[in-house]
Amino acid sequence: MARVILSADMQRYTDGIREITVSAGKYRDLVTELLQRFPGMNEAIVAKHALAIDGIIIQTPLLETFGEDSELVFVARIAGG
């Protein structure tokens, strides 16, 4: 089960739950699992975030996959200069 840390913004839809485990192995399945578990959340909220997979921040994770032991962190997208 991959470990997922949710952003502060996402925690508003999880009753404050910051960390969960998921059975998903693909980003798309991860989103589906999140929306099933937290009905208050929607796809637009998830899509506002980048996803860090094992420490590597990916701005557009649509096609990303990850392993059972992966650590996933949703993080607000940051603009640079």
Binding site: I5, S7, E19, A52, D54, G55, I56, I57, E71, V73, V75
Partner: peptide, 13 residues
């Protein structure tokens, strides 16, 4: 250092 985790949960490579 490598392996430490940021406050937002992301580990450093």
């Amino acid at each position: 250092d490598e392996g430490d985790v940021m406050a937002i949960g992301i580990p450093f490579q």
